[in-house]
Structures are given as C-alpha cells and as structure tokens.
Design a binder for these strands. Sequence first.
DNA 1: CAGTGATAATCAGCTTAACTGATAATCAGC
DNA 2: GCTGATTATCAGTTAAGCTGATTATCACTG
Lengths: 144, 144
Amino acid sequence: MSDADPGLLPARLGYLLKHAHLRFAEASAQALAPLGIDGRELAVLAVLAADVPLSQQEAAKRLGIDRTTMVAMVDVLEAKGLAERRRSPEDRRKNIVQLTAHGQEVLRKAEDVRVDAERRFLAPLPSDEAETLLRALRTLAISG
Amino acid sequence: MSDADPGLLPARLGYLLKHAHLRFAEASAQALAPLGIDGRELAVLAVLAADVPLSQQEAAKRLGIDRTTMVAMVDVLEAKGLAERRRSPEDRRKNIVQLTAHGQEVLRKAEDVRVDAERRFLAPLPSDEAETLLRALRTLAISG
DNA sequence: CAGTGATAATCAGCTTAACTGATAATCAGC
DNA sequence: GCTGATTATCAGTTAAGCTGATTATCACTG
C-alpha cells in the first residue's frame, strides 16, 4: 500500500500505527532478504532458539499466532533447512522443533540485521523520543 | 490473532507496532460497530467530506489506498446509503463521490466515537508520553 | 475532425496472512 | 481397555490488498 497525501490523516491513530508498521515491515523485509527469510520467520526462529525445546503449539502460543499458522511456518523453515521437526519421546503427539546449525547461524546474523534495521528506522527521532515511543508501545501492545 | 506470552518479543519493534495496531483496530471496530461502519469506512467518509468534491481516484490517493480498493469501498458505502456516485459534468470519466445527508450524520457521530476510542486506548499512558508517541508516529509513518 | 495515446472506473483473478472446523494419532485417568 | 482431551495436520474460508485487462472518455496532433 502506498502512502497518502498528508492531510487530515496524520491525526488518526489507526492510520499512524498501521503505516508505521507497514514502513518498518518493508524496511525489515529488505534488510533480511539477503538472508533468505522475512520478519515473521525470524520471529519464529528466535522463539525456537529458547533454551527449552518447544513443541509447535508451545512456540505458537509464545508468538501469539495460530497453531495452524505455525504448521505452515515450520514447513517453510524446514524446507529452507533452518529447523527440524522431531517427535517428542515423552509425548508422541508433539513435534519438538529445533534449529539446525544453519538455522542458528542465520538467526545470529538476522538478529544483527534486525537490530540495525530498527536503529535506522528510529533514526529520525531524537533518542529520548525513540525511547519513549518504545516504552509507550510496550504499554499499549502488551495487555495495556 | 491473539496475544503472545510476554518474553523476548516485547523488545521487537515490528511486533510492538503490529500488535499496538491490532489492539487499536479491534477497540475501534467495537466502538464503531453500533454505527454500522468500520475504521476503514470511516476514513473514506472523512476524506469524502472534504470541502472540494473528489473523484474516486483522488480520494484513493489521499487515503493511500488502491484505486480498485476504492471501488469496493464506495460500493459498500453506497449500499449503506452513506455516499453516492455521480458522473462529473466536466469529465465524464470521473465519478464524483459525495456523502448523503445520512452519511454526514454518521460521519459526525463516528468521529466522536473515534476520538473517544483513541482517548481510551491511550489512557494507560501518562499524557506527555501519549503526546510524544503521536509525534513520533507521525514522524515515522509520514515519509520519515 | 479523425486518429492516437492517456486517464477513470470497473472487473476478474491472484496473493498473503490469517482464521475455523474436521480428522487421525496419541495421551491420561478411570 | 474406554472415554475424553490434546497435538499436529489438512481443507476450505475470509479479508485486505494487489495486478492486469476492458470500456468509456478525454486531450492532443496533424
């Protein structure tokens, strides 16, 4: 979606949140493209890298995404050789999903890329304003 | 999409922007529901209420949405009796879209509802923080 | 004033990201 | 060993947006 003419819209909170997100998502996607993943895949990789190995449904819950969406995400991560399913020995209904060595490597690089993309995206703001933005978003996004 | 467990995610800008937007969109949709419109329709109504009458494509540009999306939006607004198409006398390719009396009435009420929904959504923030948030979002969303 | 190219609205169809609901395998408790 | 819950999966649906083609109209050029 392209950007609107400036007019009455900049006053609308919904518009601002939506377009700030769209802009960041685009910047982030561009930055991650050389690594062959997108922002959603990075988020899944990061969650799967938790100290404790997670089943698909546990990982989905941590990410706030649907169980069926997680199936598709793991499908693509597996196809890219970044993660692997294996049946849990204790509960054979569960798939434990773990990063491959390659997946860990990509995650490491991708986190650097993400941090840098966030820094660049926030660069137009004075640093105290950027901090306040993050704090406010945390309040609003996380059961605020 | 439901919310995630708090964990490493709150640090991620993309996650915060996305979920802040989702939360507000939901609150806004609920608040507007009694008026029979959603946030996108309200935005279109507001743009169409501009002093100068607009063609579909002009309105679409101001909103930053696609021309074909605007066709569908005007379809539903017309079906709800909130707006009307008429051929422009000067350029018969263009549809001038104008609010009906009912559309203006709904717009007036809906703007009050929106302002109130924004106020309530931002209520968890100290007021200086809310102001900074809006300023920062404006910078980031509008060609920042 | 006929012909050519651009522009406005529309339509059909595609894409993406999410969802719901159903199914098969497995587990836990009685 | 049954019965009911839970896991992953699949099929199909929804929503918002897009692209590309079509039709009508306009503006310009010769």
